[in-house]
């Protein structure tokens, strides 16, 4: 689905923000990109979306070279949810907002199709179509932005820190929605996220970046358990991984509170007996 081959990107020919990236993401994967600020995460997802083009190397999405693909063609394939929904929202009603993206990609003539799809999304997210986006809360605006991103049914969904500024409930709602999309529609998800708990709960694979380079690529659980790697990338693993890791032995394999507490309870019983 997404294939990066020795991708390098430098800003105005000066600083290399990402260097020699190579990875391959299959259809239907849920991938998180981890690393501290300035590691090159956002640049990488922008390269996948074609908002930036590699200075050298090649980025292929669905077999198409992003550097040679037209904007509207690419927008059919890849949806991008930004950290700040207010940069995306530009229409005065929620209905118009969703239709706007559809028109840009499908063309203005497809009125019926656009109408139908807009209604579908309004129902799906239980929005009122005539609501003004800017009178909604940040979490709701993020959902409006998500709805209009998903409207064109992109095969790849990119999320750049989708949970910033959201409370726990809003964050869960957005992430659960994305999970179901990934599971039922097979949408490929690539997510930049600072909240390691969210990464552990939702992503299955992680790319770790530092200083513009790819440090590691593997299943989320394995990545989080690699203490040396976490240290090198200045990351702190999720709490349960820290706890199970420190307990060591048989417990080291547990990665959620439920499993770990079960294991400990059983061990405690054995000890008493």
């Amino acid at each position: 689905m997404i294939r990066a081959e020795h991708v390098t990107y430098s800003y105005r020919g000066n600083v290399q923000t990402v260097r020699d990236l190579s990875f391959h993401i299959q259809k239907g994967e849920f991938v998180a990109i981890l690393g501290e600020n300035g590691a090159g995460k956002t640049t990488t997802v922008k390269l996948i979306d074609g908002l930036l083009c590699p200075t050298s190397g090649q980025m292929l999405v669905n077999g198409l070279d992003t550097a040679k693909t037209r904007v509207s063609e690419r927008a059919k394939q890849v949806g991008f949810l930004f950290q700040n929904p207010d940069r995306q929202i530009c229409q005065s009603t929620v209905r118009e907002e969703i239709a706007f993206g559809l028109r840009a990609v499908w063309g203005k003539k497809e009125t019926d199709k656009i109408e139908e799809r807009t209604d579908e999304l309004l129902r799906l997210f239980s929005f009122r179509g005539d609501e003004e986006p800017f009178s909604l809360s940040r979490g709701q605006r993020q959902q409006v932005a998500l709805a209009s991103t998903l409207a064109v049914k992109p095969a790849v969904l990119i999320l750049d820190e989708p949970t910033t500024g959201l409370d726990y409930r809003e964050c869960t709602r957005i992430m659960e929605f994305i999970r179901s999309l990934n599971e039922t529609e097979g949408t490929t998800v690539v997510m930049v996220c600072h909240d390691m708990e969210v990464v552990l709960d939702y992503a299955r694979r992680a790319l770790v970046m530092a200083g513009g380079q790819l440090l590691a690529d593997g299943p989320v659980h394995e990545i989080f358990r690699d203490a040396a790697l976490m240290e090198k990338a200045s990351l702190l693993p999720p709490q349960i991984i820290q706890i199970s890791g420190q307990l060591g032995g048989e417990f080291a394999s547990a990665d959620d509170a439920e499993t770990l507490s079960d294991m400990i309870a059983r061990a405690a019983e054995r000890r008493q007996a």
């Binding site: 908002l51 904007v71 930004f82 207010d86 940069r87 706007f100 840009a104 991103t149």
Partner: peptide, 30 residues
């Protein structure tokens, strides 16, 4: 904002000045 709109498929790289202006106007609200 322009980046976010480009990601949605709005083609700012259009050569037509008036077409471009028409695309930029809705962005004034945000």
């Amino acid at each position: 904002i322009m980046e976010a709109q480009t990601a949605r498929g709005v083609e700012f790289d259009s050569q037509n000045f008036f077409k471009k202006l028409g695309m930029l106007l809705p962005l004034c609200a945000p």
